[in-house]
């Protein structure tokens, strides 16, 4: 794992949903670290379990979902051992979360001020006057002009980008140590996306917090993250620092993701999509989850699930190719870097 001190260590986290069709393992043994002051990106397709992982960290999973096991250590303390009441003191205070849709993440019937004051009221017991003062400071911090006027406005009077700024102000009101951003820019247009990512980065430096950035956009990862965990079907398949991941991806799934991404710095004839689709939860392969779509898969891959192993340089891979048991072509090249245009 990383050499830095970790603020959050998730080990073997398992979250399932118990539906009428049986148990759906949305998160199935997820392990990762968030080094203090750094940004971890969690990347994956829809349904890979990245949002459920985030919700599990804050224990916001509701019926019929359940956290079945594992460990979520925040500052050395296992969050899963805490009572609901103790957990409430952590939510919004030490760990905060921002959501994908700024249009629906704010209650349309309360003013911006009332909603930001909520954080101060819950965690610091501040009244309206003091709360408003702090709320104005927060709005200033997230770059909202004339915050005094904004305080009495309703969410529908603000643009999407503004609303996301308000969401960030709410989440950061109590200066948390860890911010979980669940696709914070997906619903915004491209220019606003860049602004919001920039803002999160600035605030991270200013407040010294760590960030978990959940996204399906590798562009966002490249721009903002220090470390990346790639998820597929409820499992982490590759964990690496961002430079290594983009320069030398090792897991066939990561390689597939990168190949299906248009890049401006490479000569690229055409994009290569990953063949097939994500398997549905009730017909999950017994071996490696990615085996049915993997161009290198052997009978070993189809029969046995590989474990998440260290491969040096703080990198972890869940793939048979990098183990001694590999029975396919020993010289297999999962990733061949294409020539860059800059030479």
């Amino acid at each position: 794992m990383s050499t830095n001190e970790s603020i959050l260590e998730v080990t073997d986290l398992r979250t399932s949903f118990f539906t009428e069709g049986g148990e759906v393992k949305a998160v199935d043994g997820v392990t990762f670290d968030v080094p203090a002051g750094k940004t971890l990106g969690i990347v994956g397709e829809s349904g890979s379990g990245k949002s459920i992982t985030a919700m599990s960290i804050l224990q916001l999973i509701s019926h019929p979902g359940k956290i079945k096991g594992g460990e979520i250590k925040f500052r050395g303390k296992n969050l899963l051992d805490l009572s609901e009441k103790e957990m409430r003191k952590i939510r919004g205070n030490q760990i905060s979360m921002i959501f994908q849709e700024p249009m629906t993440s704010l209650n349309p019937t309360y003013t911006v001020g009332q909603q930001i004051r909520e954080s101060y009221k819950i965690h610091q017991g501040l009244g309206k006057k003091e709360g408003s003062k702090r709320a104005i400071e927060m709005l200033k911090l997230v770059g909202i002009p004339s915050p005094e006027k904004r305080l009495d406005q309703y969410p529908f009077e603000l643009s999407g980008g503004m609303r996301q700024r308000v969401m960030i102000a709410m989440a950061l009101a109590c200066k948390p140590d860890l911010l979980i951003a669940d696709e914070p820019t997906t619903a915004l247009d491209v220019t606003i996306q860049a602004q919001i990512l920039e803002l999160i980065k600035e605030l991270q430096d200013e407040l010294g917090m760590s960030v978990v950035m959940i996204t399906h956009d590798l562009g966002v990862v490249a721009e903002t993250c220090d470390y990346v965990a790639v998820m597929y079907c409820g499992k982490v398949v590759e964990y690496a620092d961002v430079r290594t991941l983009f320069k030398n991806p090792r897991h066939p799934y990561t390689v597939g993701l990168l190949k299906s991404l248009p890049r401006s710095d490479r000569d690229q004839e055409e994009l290569t999509p990953i063949k097939g689709t994500v398997p549905s939860p009730d017909e999950m392969p017994v071996g490696c989850r990615f085996a049915p779509r993997c161009p290198f898969a052997t009978n070993l891959c189809h029969e046995k699930l590989p474990s998440l192993d260290d491969v040096g340089d703080g990198e972890q891979i869940r793939c048979w190719i990098y183990t001694d048991e590999w029975n396919g072509d020993p010289g297999v090249k999962v990733y061949e870097p294409e020539r860059t245009t800059e030479g």
Partner: peptide
């Protein structure tokens, strides 16, 4: 109402 995103958001802020 429970499924509204802002209810999740307010829960993530530590509301009881």
């Amino acid at each position: 109402a429970k499924k509204l995103e802002y209810v999740d958001a307010i829960r993530a802020l530590g509301s009881s």
